[in-house]
């Protein structure tokens, strides 16, 4: 069942992005930035965890989930260390994804080259 919810919820979050692309003049960069910040806000409001429980990767894979991850991380670090956790929690939680992106990007740059779209 979690597979179906992952597909449906994940797809629906993407459709919202597509509607923003088609109906507004927002650039993709602004939409993505908006998604992450919205993810933080939804998580802070306690609305995202129920969705994550239901949809699993359907909630964590879209960029909203990245915001959720940052917000969760910051909460945990504040619980553990108090105020300094405000500075360490977010990126600690996101470190896996960010490091993977950087390392794989550099490896790709090492072996790859720019490609014509024609």
């Amino acid at each position: 069942m979690s597979y179906l919810w992952a597909f449906v919820i994940g797809g629906a979050i993407c459709v919202v992005g597509q509607l923003l692309l088609d109906y507004t003049a927002l650039s993709p960069a602004r939409i993505l930035t908006g998604y992450v910040v919205t993810g933080v806000v939804l998580s802070a409001a306690g609305l995202y965890q129920p969705l994550a429980d239901l949809a699993g990767a359907g909630a964590s894979v879209p960029l909203l989930g990245f915001g959720h991850l940052l917000a969760q991380g910051v909460c945990r670090a504040v619980d553990e260390t108090g105020l300094p956790g405000v500075f360490t929690g977010g990126l600690c939680a996101a470190s896996g994804g960010v490091t993977a992106s950087l390392v794989f990007a550099l490896l790709a740059a090492l072996v790859g080259r720019s490609r014509d779209q024609n």
Partner: peptide, 16 residues
Amino acid sequence: FCAAERQFRTPLTYGG
């Protein structure tokens, strides 16, 4: 196309 794309828009392997 490619020189213009990378200068004015996005990298060529970027999905848009």
